[in-house]
Nucleic acid binder design. Structure first.
Lengths: 229, 229
DNA sequence: TTAAAAATATGATAATTATCAGTAAAATAC
DNA sequence: GTATTTTACTGATAATTATCATATTTTTAA
């Protein structure tokens, strides 16, 4: 038996919280739950999406393939985020791929439920709008960072971002473990360059690592590095 | 005597077209027209905006200052675009500065008019949402371009962008004339690098220039260059 | 109109970053 | 548990891009 949206806590973190009980009931009736294994795609660049995906558990990377075959990760989406919204709203195929970094649990909500509510419930639309405004602001920041900061600065920033957004485990490692390649795709650099900088950060005592797991050792210095000192 | 929004053609190009006659009337009553001279700011990063600016004429650069003192131009906004929307919607201070590149004419619309309509007219909200979805998609593209393409490729792309979005004058020059510094801030590179690449493009016959004015000579090759051939 | 300031241009050089090559370690499949 | 594949790492080198210096041209202001 599947759980109902009405009782889902995740909803509190996204725009679905602005839905009425009745609307939520309809969404819940039309939704389907899916399990996505680590490494598997939820959708791919160019797909026409028939709905949105509400992330219940796990983390997904949203990325775009460039001409030279490298992926640029534009966002890491976790619990509570709704994927595919933009595509459904503008009725275009997605410009991003979503791939599971962890094992994930997502709910697929058909676009009809969303569009219906968008047209009838201004509160919901406004809530979606607020979220998108936030995403756009973040995107602007990413643009400025990528174009104005060095790879080293962006690497430092990435680790801080990972700590602030996904936390640490009991051993003090970043809770979200990314491959070196994924890190390089977040930062927008060559994998070897990312690895080199990780080595350097380790030597300088800014971070420590055990296999793939990376922990932040000197947050203050890392922050200074990100700011350019 | 000022012109009325109801009769303004510009409106057809932005989300204001989804407003009812009545709403439009209220907007028109509350709006004020402003003339902004070339080089003057409309608003600056960190400002709390009390409304949005609808561009009637001229072009504005939306930019963000980085720690090292360089401006990154995130968007060039022209006739029909509404500036400051994101800030008003999320009720935060803006993350961008808007400076006039041309002499401009803009209408200032107090946020109350906008917020009112956002809460009452789902069509308007949806229209704003669609625009923002579009902007977000564009921002993603910019991120991927900046991080995956070389400066040369991005320069080529910038000229094509300028042609496609602002057209050419009767002499075949790009209608929007930017300083070399502005070009470098759009592309995200050092001014000297931008100048050097302009010289190179001239030598290769991709563009021609007369003072600040730049014209596209071989669009096909420029496109190939942007794609990485 | 002339002086001053700003923008454009170019060379020399340094710094950053990517690429290629190859080894070591880890994860996965059998 | 071993073989195979993938991922991580390091060095050498090349390519890209930024920075500094300086000259020239253009624009602006007095």
């Amino acid at each position: 038996m599947e759980s109902r949206c009405e009782n889902c806590i995740i909803r509190q973190f996204n725009s679905l919280r602005a839905m009425s009980k009745d609307e939520l009931k309809k969404v819940s009736d039309s939704k389907t739950s899916k399990t996505i294994k680590k490494g598997e795609p939820i959708f791919e660049e160019g797909d026409k999406l028939n709905g949105v995906y509400c992330v219940r558990d796990g983390v997904s990377k949203l990325s775009k393939l460039s001409a030279n075959g490298k992926d640029q990760i534009v966002k890491l989406a976790t619990k509570g985020e709704v994927l595919g919204q933009r595509s459904v709203i503008s009725e275009e195929s997605t410009n991003l791929s979503a791939v599971a970094i962890d094992d994930m649990e997502v709910c697929f909500i058909p676009k009809e439920s969303i569009n219906n509510t968008l047209q009838k419930n201004p509160n919901f639309t406004l809530e979606v709008l607020r979220h998108m405004a936030h995403d756009l602001k973040e995107a602007d920041d990413v643009i400025v960072n990528i174009s104005q900061k060095t790879v080293k600065q962006r690497m430092a920033e990435a680790f801080l971002y990972l700590k602030n957004n996904f936390g640490e485990d009991e051993d003090g490692f970043l809770a979200l473990t990314l491959t070196r390649e994924d890190i390089s795709n977040v930062v927008g650099t060559a994998t070897e360059s990312a690895i080199r900088i990780i080595s350097e950060f380790k030597k300088k005592g800014l971070i420590h690592a055990s296999g793939k797991k990376i922990g932040i050792k000197d947050e203050r210095k890392l922050l200074e590095m990100a700011e350019g000192f």
